[in-house]
Design a binder for these strands. Structure first.
Lengths: 191, 191
DNA sequence: GCCGTTATGAACCAATCGGTCCATAACGGC
DNA sequence: GCCGTTATGGACCGATTGGTTCATAACGGC
């Protein structure tokens, strides 16, 4: 009965990404993955080598998507608005269940920090790339390079906090209000 | 050969806490625990019921210790200094290896959010307790109750960020500078 | 010095983990 | 319509997982 159809690779990767995002790397078993991706073991190992390799692919995919999202926002609204939108979007999209999943990169940094240093470091590097986009936005908004670097670092710290907080199932206001406060401060700092 | 000596329970719990703190719940196997606690399987299950039960005990212990720490600082220095000290201490203690382990509560919220909701929620509740201490400190410092509540929420968001960031093995300055910036803002807000 | 209590080490357990292997069947080239 | 290629499902693998069972030996009460 082998070989009914060739499976859709990108669809499968997206399903895997969802699982890893929700449950983390360790808690996602091969059985979970195969069920969600709707493929068999052989196809899995033929196409993705490894559970770990697939995870890395998901990590990189997630990162590039996040950065694309930031770039697109930045092209359609004032730079600081784009940044604030990036923070708020996680909570306003009620239909988007991923609001409660935080950020795959932040999740991975924490989960793998004492377990698989390479994976943790890779996620950390992706966060650095995102921080550089923050910095570029702030410079667009008129901040000096040093100011932009400072504020971007602070914003990344805040970002990490928001992504943790978004997994705590607290009332939305408890997230949104501090975000508003923070961006009020940032706007006044670069004015 | 059984029964050489009765083991030191609190010492064993501390060893377990260290392991869970560094590696997380799932990555810490029973074998790891037994080796670190220097006890046998039977003693383990007789004294702690479960891996999960022991973890809960560690979670609660960590929380109460953290709160104690905050209370003691609060008794020996001005309230906002005590808060800032709480954030900085993680990075200045170079001898204390735990600086790179973040916060067990934050780690657990993230690791277990999509895996064991009870554990994640328990850690989250402990974070709420800590946030209330933040709030009390800020009120001590002269903030109005509403101001204190706002700033405490923002500070908890920042706290979560710092604990994530501390697991990324970045140069210390990259952590400390945003903390200093944030507390400058807080001080000016309640002045 | 005997004895019931109790904490221990070691053997054992089923279940699950990630990963490999192989016979099989659908496909494209001819 | 035959055939080599290739992707598939399912059986199989050793290792490790968290947890149980039980014989054994040290201890305190007497």
């Amino acid at each position: 009965m082998p070989r009914p159809i060739e499976f859709d690779r990108t669809k499968a990767v997206n399903r895997a990404l969802s699982l890893f995002w929700r449950q983390g790397y360790q808690a996602t078993s091969l059985a979970d993955l195969l069920a969600a991706m709707e493929i068999g073991r052989s196809s899995f190992y033929a196409a993705f080598t490894d559970k770990r390799s697939l995870f890395i692919e998901c990590l990189d995919l997630f990162s590039s998507r996040t950065i694309d999202l930031l770039h697109r926002s930045r092209a359609t609204m004032p730079p600081v608005d784009a940044l604030q939108d990036f923070f708020v979007r996680n909570f306003t999209g009620t239909t988007n269940a991923s609001g409660h999943w935080g950020c795959l990169l932040v999740n991975t940094v924490l989960e793998m920090a004492g377990v698989d240093v390479e994976l943790s470091a890779r996620a950390s590097r992706h966060l650095n790339e995102i921080q550089r986009v923050f910095q570029a936005c702030l410079q667009d908004a008129g901040a000096t390079p040093e100011q932009a670097e400072d504020l971007a670092a602070m914003l990344m710290l805040f970002n990490e906090g928001v992504r943790v907080s978004s997994r705590r199932r607290l009332p939305h206001a408890q997230h949104l209000h501090p975000i508003a406060t923070t961006f009020r401060l940032i706007r006044s700092a670069i004015a």
